[in-house]
Design a binder for these strands. Structure first.
Length: 487
DNA sequence: TCTGGGGTCCTCAAACTC
DNA sequence: TCTGGAGTTTGAGGACCC
C-alpha cells in the first residue's frame, strides 16, 4: 500500500533500512508520494508538501520516485495474483482486488486464509517485499481488512460480522468519503458509520445527492455489490506540469501548452487511442483551477489538431497574475480517428465513382485543419535563461550524456567502485553510495558530475537470482493487496 | 511554507434535439 | 405551425483515489 515506494527503496538500499525514507517530488513545489513507517513517526505522510516534510524529518532520506522500477515489481506481484484468479483488478501499482471465488482457489474462510498466507509468502519470495492481505465478501471490506492488516499481515473479516465491525469506525474509512464529504457529514452530526446507517437513505440522498448518498448508505450497511473487474477501459489521457516558479509570460504559456499537447498525443498514440474532447487545465497563481474543453466532430490523434484546440482554449483564459500548473488532456476516447473515417469514406466514394463513372470531385470538406495556428506565433522568442521547468517529474528514462543529471536515489555504476546509487548532487558534484540490495550498507564517495567513469544504470533485482539456499533478502514494510471474494 | 500527477465519477447548468 | 417538456450532449467544476 502506501509505503510501497519507500519499502522498495529500502529493499534496494541496505543503508536505508530502518531509517526514515521519503519519496516524492524534490522541487520547491513537490509533495510526498510515500513515507516509510520510520518517517511517519515524525508526522510525515503522503500528499504533504515536501518542505513541511523536511522540517518534520530533516534527517530522512529524500528520494525521487523511480516508477519504472516500481512497475517491474508491481508486474511480478500482479503475475502472482493472476495465478490465483482470472479476475484481478489493479487499483494502482501496489494494490489490487482478486476474486478468489472466480479463481476456484477458495471455498470457505479456512481455504481463503490459506491462499492469502501463501500469497504473502510468494510475494516475499519473489520481490523481497512484504504485502498485506484483506479477505472479505466484498471489495470495500477487503480493502478495510487490508488497511487493518498493515504492515505485513492478513485480516479476514468473517461473514456476518461486518456491520458490527463498521459501526464504530469513522465515516472516512468508507471509499468515497474524503475531506469534503467527511466535513459535510460532520456538520450534519454524522461521524461514524453506525450514525450513517442510522441516518437513513433519504437523509443521505438529501445531504449528498442521489448517487453518492445512495452508495454511501449501502456501504454503511456493509453492502457493496461492485464486481471485481479485470479489464477497465481508459476514459481519458492527460499530462500536466507544475512549474517551480509561476509563469507570467503569455508567450511562454502558449509554448508550454503546445509542448504538453505534444506529450499528451504521444501518450494517447502509445496507448492506441484517439479522442474527441480536448481539455485544457490551468491552475493560477492563487491555486484556483480552471478547465476549458472543446469537443471535436470526430476523434483525433493528430498532434496538430490537439495543439490547435488547446491553443484556442487558452485564448479564453486570463493568465495575468501567473500560472503554476498547465495541463492538456484528451477524453471521449476511441480506437479510430476522424482521419480514418475520412480516408474510409473517401476510398468508398472513389470506388463508387469509378464504378458509376460519374465524377463529383468534391474534395471532402474535412474540418480537420480548421482554423489552425497561424505559423505558430510562439516560434521566435526563445525565452532564454533559467526556465523554471516542470517540478522534477522523476522519470528514470535515458539521459543525454551532454547534460547528465543525477536524480537522488537513482542507480549508477562506477567503472572502479561498481554499483551504487545517487545520494545527492549539486555544485558540479555527485555523491554516490556503493551498495546493492544484497550487500551490507555501503560507503559513500563523491565525484564530479561529468566523471566519465560514472554512468546511470538499471535497478538491480531486489531478490538474488534463484539458487540453492536462496537467502531471501530484506524486508521493508508491506506492499498491501486487498483480496476479496472467498467465503 | 503551503498544496504533484494521472485518473475516475458525479453534479449542475445551458444548449440542443425530438 | 407553434410551443412546452423531456431527454441528451456539452462544458465546467468539485470530490475522491492512489
Amino acid at each position: 500500500m502506501d509505503a510501497f515506494y519507500a519499502s522498495a527503496e529500502q529493499a534496494a538500499k541496505p543503508s536505508l533500512r530502518g531509517k526514515a525514507v521519503v519519496v516524492g517530488g524534490l522541487g520547491p513545489r513537490g509533495v510526498v508520494a510515500t513515507a516509510s513507517y520510520e518517517a511517519r513517526r515524525f508526522g510525515v505522510h503522503s500528499a504533504m508538501p515536501m518542505g513541511q516534510a523536511r522540517r518534520l524529518a530533516p534527517n530522512a532520506a529524500y528520494l525521487v520516485p523511480r516508477f519504472s522500477f516500481y512497475r517491474d515489481i508491481s508486474e511480478q506481484v500482479m503475475r502472482l495474483l493472476r495465478e490465483l484468479s482470472p479476475l484481478v483488478e489493479p487499483l494502482s501499482l501496489d494494490e489490487a482486488f482478486v476474486d478468489l471465488e472466480a479463481g476456484g482457489v477458495a471455498s470457505d474462510e479456512a481455504s481463503a486464509r490459506a491462499v492469502g498466507e501463501r500469497l504473502r509468502a510468494d510475494i516475499l519470495r519473489v520481490t523481497g517485499l512484504t504485502g498485506s492481505v484483506g479477505l472479505a465478501v466484498c471489495k470495500m471490506l477487503a480493502k478495510i481488512g487490508s488497511e487493518q492488516a498493515k504492515p505485513d499481515g492478513l485480516v479476514l473479516i468473517p461473514a456476518g460480522t461486518e456491520r458490527k465491525l463498521l459501526e464504530p469506525m469513522s465515516v472516512r474509512i468508507l471509499p468515497g468519503v474524503g475531506p469534503a464529504t467527511g466535513d459535510h457529514l460532520r456538520r450534519a452530526g454524522i461521524t461514524t458509520v453506525g450514525e450513517l446507517a442510522e441516518a437513513g437513505e433519504d437523509e443521505l440522498v438529501r445531504l449528498l445527492g442521489k448517487a453518492h448518498g445512495g452508495a454511501l448508505y449501502a456501504m454503511a450497511l456493509a453492502r457493496d455489490e461492485r464486481p471485481v473487474v479485470a479489464e477497465r477501459d481508459t476514459k481519458s489521457v492527460s499530462v500536466e506540469d507544475t512549474y517551480d516558479v509561476d509563469i507570467h509570460d503569455r508567450v511562454r504559456v502558449r509554448m508550454e501548452v503546445a509542448r504538453l499537447a505534444e506529450r499528451c498525443v504521444q501518450r494517447l498514440r502509445a496507448a492506441g487511442h484517439s479522442g474527441r474532447t480536448i481539455v485544457l487545465k490551468v491552475r493560477r497563481f492563487d491555486f484556483s483551477t480552471l478547465t476549458r474543453s472543446e469537443t471535436l466532430r470526430g476523434p483525433t490523434d493528430d498532434p496538430g489538431v490537439v495543439r490547435e484546440a488547446a491553443a484556442r482554449l487558452l485564448e479564453s483564459v486570463d493568465t495575468t497574475g501567473g500560472v503554476r500548473l498547465l495541463g492538456v488532456g484528451v477524453s471521449g476516447l476511441a480506437d479510430y480517428t476522424q482521419e480514418d473515417l475520412f480516408a474510409q469514406a473517401q476510398a468508398k466514394a472513389e470506388a463508387e465513382a469509378a464504378e458509376a463513372a460519374g465524377a463529383d470531385g468534391d474534395p471532402g470538406a474535412a474540418q480537420e485543419g480548421g482554423g489552425g495556428l497561424p505559423a505558430e506565433g510562439a516560434g521566435g522568442e526563445s525565452v532564454g535563461g533559467v526556465e523554471p521547468g516542470p517540478a522534477e517529474s522523476g522519470g528514470a528514462e535515458p539521459v543525454p550524456p551532454a547534460e547528465r543529471r543525477w536524480p537522488s536515489g537513482h542507480d549508477v555504476r562506477h567503472a572502479v567502485h561498481g554499483a551504487g546509487w545517487v545520494q545527492g548532487s549539486g555544485l558540479g558534484r555527485v555523491t554516490v553510495r556503493f551498495e546493492t540490495p544484497q550487500s551490507v550498507p555501503g560507503r559513500v564517495r563523491t565525484f564530479r558530475t561529468d566523471d566519465p567513469e560514472l554512468e546511470p544504470s538499471d535497478p538491480l533485482p531486489l531478490v538474488a537470482a534463484p539458487g540453492p539456499g536462496e537467502g531471501a533478502a530484506v524486508v521493508g514494510p508491506e506492499a498491501g493487496l486487498p483480496v476479496p471474494g472467498a467465503g
